[in-house]
Design a binder for these strands. Structure first.
Length: 1119
RNA sequence: AGUCUCGUAGCUCAGUUGGUUAGAGCACUACACUGAUAAUGUAGGGGUCGGCGGUUCAAAUCCGCCCGAGACUACCA
């Protein structure tokens, strides 16, 4: 190929397709890995998505982040393997299967066999795999889709078993009976990190009851005897737990008041006990205190306010031991009912809420269970014996009351558990409230808004429920986890120190058990008495144990081909004394699956031992996921690595924020504000989408996704770069530039070339550092700025003539080489974020020149900055040139003189010689840019400059302190002579009150913003005056330029080739004649005219040349 | 309820260790420039830097309180 490709317009989606095909056909991804040395790895872990749901735009976000750092490291010469993966187990899959089959968990094993059910799960789990693979490819995410790890495969499971056995051997795995969050709708317990998924805690309005527990007179301390019926008040937000109440807990040192008043529902006189601190809150404005007991008698049933009288006070410990009548006597605990229904002590009781007395139901509260157990004698939980004689709570696993509950039996304890069509009007909570009101046992019933956890998958409220579960003793490794965490580079740092760090500080044990079917089975077998157990760490071990059992028990078992339930459940092992051992039926938390991926993806330790043991693939150099994974994947990776390997699992982690809609609202199907990633990429291209996401806000900030922003990126960054390339291609093709000539040495290139090269190298250094520091937003913004402000709008604009004017000279060659270098380097720098466009640009250049030696930008090395090419003086003077030009344009505007009209000179006050030298060096650029003939420098010796002194606050502030203000006024008032003195002597003594301050030149900022008699403009120390006098000669030159402009427009409208020679005919006019007399050759030269003829009429529409002069112009191509 | 983060132009965002006229882009208006042309330049409107108080010669920047948003924490009855 010898010509650069030219295009009709920028079409990003088309570029996507072209480059995608190129990558596939040439295996660029594979080469980008294999071409890097094996011993120079950059380890990346792919957090496995579940192919059970559709990919969303937020996945494009998180995968862009992953992809760009992997691509960057590849270009830095690292070998970056990216094994894809699929998260295949867990509740979401089971629930979607159940929904599809129209069954519930209870039906599994009856209506459908576990076998069939699991087969269905396996089938469902990859449902959207094709869509995922598709978006992965289309968004340009490079990950190995052909050899992914899949969590349901036996190899994966075997690795997980091995990890579990490591924990088991370290005594970090145990079985315990505890109150746990349980989701009746999902039919399983939940781990604390599942409860900590965003959105799980929600405000709900519940019926709350302050119940009256009637004390038994005999058990009262003497001081409280003889007060008649005495009730202890206790508050609950979960009235359905009241039937399971077996104790009341008070704080031993809390003050309690005994109050006589009336029940607001039955109007019956009552005496109640509650914390003194909460009397106000509980009685509120409905009640008024009276000073003496006699004041109570004035009350009439139904009165608006109810009087109350404080009879006496006591401490919590005085109440301990009091017995009370069971509030809702449906049934009694099956064990030691005589020890129930007493007041006990608990340190967790506060007086912030309620009554200072905690209703205690040990079956449904962790604190409750603890204090009940600690009390002496132990308070029994409300457990009854079920049909099989097993102790169970009054609520079953579906969240329904058991048969013992009489009128409430069979009802769900939360209305949310019903199907939408069956929801009863009154919830159990309300029914209980009504009943207590009628029985004079409700002191107060009200609605209360509080935060309550919900199941992350079913969206229904969680129940706290007593369960037998397997736990990982994560709390034992808490300090070590915190220690290792401090070595991890978190982006942003606050997530690591704050959110993750705090979480580690309060770490709870990890509830590993899931009572489900589709997941990795817990590899623990026990005998019936639970006196002996075995944890299987490999299939080989299982085989040998099976063989042992077969021999001992006379069985003919085999290790199942599929390690899932139900097959694995059928395996019976044998204990040391010949008893059969059965598998613990639980599955393990799917989060353990994903946290195991560093090892299980390679089937460690059964294969690829060196990947982990020699650090080839562990720990990760880099991982990235959404911030919602802090308590999820980030935690499980960290926990397993710490507990099994005493190592971090990752060294750098980027936690990206949420993707919101353009109004900052979370995207949800319900609101219909979801952005379809396929659509977005199809219409705007992957690169514009990726670039927008990265450049708009740092990844860890929430992104308000607005398609208008994607449009802007497309137009501004990619459009401008495309234009720049097109410009280059157009002229390089004409001149046959293919970079075959030797490099023009930098010091032989013109000022502006050295300037853009200087900026480019500065940019390379900054972009490289930003990527290395996981700051892609800074990198992208710096690149954008360079493309738009510097390369396109200064370098190319000022250099246009160099490309199309004159012979193929050394200057022209320098221009081509400079622009080529800029484009090639930009392509490389933007490649991590915009992999398609950058490769397209790179190939457009490189396919012609073959300069790089590689076929794709992704096989190229990241551009290294050449510090010697950075010339700070040059950068400064170009900055002067830009600012002076801008000031002149602004003056022209003010004076209404268009840029095509040449002017004779500008005046530039010079305050120091280096400024003059600097401007001199860029003089020609300025003059050409603003169409001025010359610059005159004026120094203060001529006396025309009016100077102003301002204090330099930074240096003076430290010296002067309080006198700063006065000094400011004094310095501003300095006259011309004083300023001149300061400049000459470099010192000044400032007198403020009694203080003399010796100031130096540095303490002043001396500027010249005025030249008396001239219109001036100034900007940060630079002042420019414009000579607006237009001589006849200048006027005619202006007309000449107008003519050039008109003729060029005609050329363009007529679609002439830029190289066509022409003959111009202009209708004769005196002004035109005068102009041609002086400028015919100039005009001819500019418009490539062989001849310019004056004619009587061109037969074309007259064009206005200057005000009042309109003539026809016609143009013909020669030859 | 507590903890953390954040409130800068209509929108998206910059704003160095505190330094005196708070910036850019988008959008809007006018004018200009253009052999890159869905680009660009100049000018204009648009801000009590969430509010109040404090520290300081000096606060968008540091501190406190309040308001608002978000995330996190919590078995709190």
């Amino acid at each position: 190929m010898t010509k650069y490709r030219e295009f009709k317009g920028l079409n990003l989606p088309e570029i996507d397709n072209e480059i995608l095909a190129f990558w596939t056909d040439n295996q660029i991804f594979e080469k980008s890995i294999s071409s890097r040395p094996e011993d120079k790895t950059f380890v990346f872990y792919e957090g496995p998505p579940s192919a059970n749901g559709m990919p969303g735009i937020h996945h494009v976000m998180s995968r862009t982040v992953k992809d760009l750092f992997c691509r960057y490291q590849t270009m830095k010469g690292k070998r970056v393997e990216r094994k894809g993966g699929w998260d295949t187990h867990g509740l979401p899959i089971e629930l979607s299967v159940e929904k599809e089959l129209g069954i519930t968990k209870e039906d599994i094993g009856t209506k459908i066999s576990v076998d069939e059910y699991n087969a269905k799960c396996r089938e469902t789990v990859m449902r959207y795999k094709d869509l995922w693979d598709d978006i992965t490819r289309k968004m340009g995410y490079w990950v190995d889709l052909n050899h992914p790890y899949i969590t349901f495969e036996n190899d994966y499971i075997e690795s997980v078993w091995w990890l579990l056995s490591q924990l088991y051997n370290k005594k970090l795995l145990y079985k315990g009976y505890t109150i746990q969050p349980y989701s009746p709708a999902a039919g399983t317990g939940l781990s604390s990190h599942e409860l900590n998924q965003p959105g799980c805690y929600r405000d709900v309005t519940d019926t709350t009851i302050v119940a009256q527990f009637k004390t038994i007179e005999d058990s009262l301390p003497d001081s409280l005897k003889g007060l008649g019926e005495l009730f202890i008040l206790a508050w609950t937000t979960t009235p359905w737990t009241l039937p399971s109440n077996t104790a009341l807990t008070v704080g031993p040192n809390i003050d309690y008041s005994v109050i006589k008043t009336y029940n607001q529902y039955t109007f019956a006189p009552i005496t109640v006990v509650l914390a003194s601190a909460l009397v106000e809150k509980q009685l509120g404005n409905k009640f008024t205190a009276v000073d003496e007991e006699a004041g109570l008698s004035a009350y009439q049933s139904g009165d608006k306010t109810i009087p109350y009288f404080v009879v006496t006070t006591c401490k919590g410990k005085d109440l301990t031991g009091i017995r009370y009548e069971q509030l809702l006597p449906y049934t009694l605990p099956y064990q030691n009912p005589e020890n129930a229904f007493r007041v006990i002590e608990g340190s967790f009781v506060t007086t912030e809420d309620g009554t200072g007395v905690v209703h205690t139901a040990p079956t449904f509260g962790a604190d409750d269970a603890r204090v009940a157990k600690e009390a002496k004698p132990e308070v029994p939980p409300m457990l009854v014996l079920d049909e099989k004689g097993n102790p169970v709570p009054l609520v079953d696993l579906q969240g329904r009351f058991r048969p013992e509950m009489g009128d409430l039996a069979g009802k769900y304890v939360k209305n949310e558990y019903y199907n939408a069509s069956d929801v009863p009007e009154r919830s159990v909570d309300v029914e209980i409230a009504i009943r207590l009101k009628e029985e004079n046992r409700a002191f107060k019933v009200e609605k209360y808004v509080h935060n309550y956890p919900h199941c992350w998958r079913t969206d229904k409220p969680v129940l706290y429920y007593p369960m037998d579960s397997w736990f990982i003793r994560a709390s034992a490794a808490k300090e070590r986890m915190a220690e290792l965490n401090s070595s991890i580079n978190w982006k942003p740092a606050s997530t690591g120190e704050g959110r993750f760090g705090k979480w580690l500080e309060n770490l709870q044990d990890w509830n590993l058990s899931r009572s489900r079917y589709w997941g990795i089975p817990l590899p623990i077998w026990r005998n019936a008495e639970a006196t002996e157990e075995i944890c299987i760490d490999s299939i080989a071990k299982l085989e040998s144990e099976v063989a042992k059992a077969n021999a001992a028990l006379g069985l003919n078992q085999q290790v199942p081909k599929d390690l899932h339930r139900p097959y694995i459940d059928e395996v019976v092992l044998v204990s040391s004394n010949g008893e059969p051992m059965k598998r613990e039926l639980d599955l393990i938390d799917v989060w353990f699956d994903s946290g195991s991926m560093p090892y299980a993806q390679w089937h460690y330790p059964f294969e690829a031992k060196d990947k982990i043991d020699n650090g080839l693939s562990f720990p990760a150099d880099f991982i990235a996921e959404g911030v919602d994974q802090t308590r999820g994947w980030f935690y499980t990776l960290h926990a397993i690595a710490t507990m099994v390997f005493d190592s971090v699992a990752y060294k750098n982690v980027v936690s990206n924020g949420l993707v919101l809609d353009k109004n900052g609202v979370k995207m949800s199907k319900r609101l219909g504000n979801v952005v379809d990633p396929f659509d977005t990429i199809r219409t705007h291209g992957a690169d514009a989408t990726r670039w927008y996401m990265i450049a708009n806000a740092p990844p860890w900030d929430n992104l308000k996704f607005d398609l208008a922003g994607v449009e802007e990126v497309k137009r501004k960054t990619f459009g401008t770069l495309y234009n720049t390339y097109s410009f280059f291609a157009l002229y390089a093709n004409i001149d046959g530039f293919v970079y075959s000539e030797a490099e023009v040495p930098l010091n032989e290139r013109p000022e502006i070339d050295r300037w853009i090269i200087s900026l480019l190298n500065d940019l390379k250094a900054r972009v490289d550092a930003s990527y290395a520091d996981y700051e892609p937003t800074t990198a992208a913004r710096d690149i954008e700025e360079f493309i738009d402000a510097h390369l396109s709008n200064w370098y190319v604009r000022l250099c246009r003539r160099r490309f199309w004017k004159g012979e193929y000279s050394k200057d022209k060659l320098a221009a081509y080489q400079t622009l080529y270098t800029c484009l090639e380097s930009i392509a490389a720098m933007m490649a991590p974020v915009a992999p398609f466009f950058s490769d397209w640009l790179f190939k457009n250049l490189n396919d012609v020149t073959q300069k790089s030696g590689v076929t794709s930008v992704h096989l190229f090395d990241f551009p290294a900055a050449d510090a010697t090419a950075i010339d700070n003086d040059l950068l400064e003077r170009m900055d002067y040139a830009q600012r002076i030009s801008s000031l002149i344009l602004s003056l022209r505007k003010k004076e209404n003189i268009r840029v095509r009209q040449p002017l004779s000179r500008i005046l530039l006050p010079v305050l120091n010689p280096s400024f003059k030298d600097q401007v001199e060096a860029v003089r020609d650029l300025i003059l050409a840019e603003v169409n001025i003939k010359q610059i005159e420098y004026i120094t203060d010796t001529e006396g025309v400059i009016h100077k102003k002194a301002k204090p330099n606050f930074k240096t003076l502030g430290r010296k002067l302190g309080k006198d700063m203000k006065a000094a400011g006024d004094l310095i501003a008032a300095l006259d011309q002579k004083q300023i001149a003195d300061i400049e000459r002597s470099g010192s000044y003594t400032l007198v403020i009150g009694d203080n003399n301050y010796d100031l130096v030149l540095e303490d002043f900022e001396i500027t010249s913003e005025d030249i008396p008699g001239w219109t001036v403009a100034s900007d940060k120390g630079i002042t420019v005056a414009l000579d607006v006098h237009i001589s006849n000669e200048l006027y005619l030159e202006g007309v000449a330029r107008e003519l050039v402009n008109r003729i060029q427009n005609i050329r363009k409208e007529s679609d002439f080739e830029v190289t066509d020679r022409i003959v111009v005919s202009i209708e004769s006019h005196e002004l035109i004649q005068q102009t041609l007399a002086s400028f015919q050759s100039y005009i001819s030269n500019e418009v490539l005219a062989d001849d310019i003829r004056l004619v009587a009429s061109t037969g074309t529409e007259a064009l206005e040349i200057v005000e009042g002069v309109s003539v026809g112009i016609s143009v013909e191509v020669v030859g």
